[in-house]
Nucleic acid binder design. Structure first.
Length: 129
DNA sequence: GTTCTGACA
DNA sequence: TGTCAGCA
């Protein structure tokens, strides 16, 4: 069994996700409505999340904290799926809204120039400092 | 006990 | 986003 398939295996119910991501069930469901995540379903229609879903949610949380809205996050994910790299979206300090837009624009531009290399991943490492 | 959908004093 | 209802 490859790691890839392991990471995509539907394992946790929303309760576990709440603890792992510190997001409310309401938020998680809302993100699903907006196409940011697509968790599997159990026979009883319960959502089952994979490790990839957890990473995805942590990334959504991170981007949201930087002022990116759901539509923006959706576009960032779409670009990734198209193989375009989306570097340095991890700021240490909180930039102004203007800076966010300026930097996002610059980063997306650079992403287009340099091939695909750095993707934001390994969010789970936060739990294993 | 937990999760789901829909709705909003 | 929170929270409550009414189910499964």
């Amino acid at each position: 069994m490859g790691d890839q398939v392991r990471r995509n295996m539907p394992l946790f119910p929303i309760g576990i996700i709440k603890q792992l991501t510190e997001l409310s069930a309401r938020q998680v469901r809302y993100y699903e409505e907006n196409g940011l995540i697509t968790p599997a379903r159990s026979e009883g229609n319960r959502r089952l999340f994979s490790f990839n879903d957890v990473d995805r949610l942590l990334e959504i949380k991170s981007l949201l904290e930087r002022g990116v809205n759901l539509a923006g996050i959706r576009e960032i994910f779409e670009m990734k799926e198209r193989g375009i790299s989306v570097p340095n979206l991890h700021y240490k300090t909180e930039p102004s809204e203007g800076d966010i837009h300026k930097n996002l624009k610059k980063e997306l531009y650079q992403a287009g120039r340099f091939g695909k290399t750095s993707l934001i991943q390994g969010e789970l490492s936060r739990f294993f400092n």
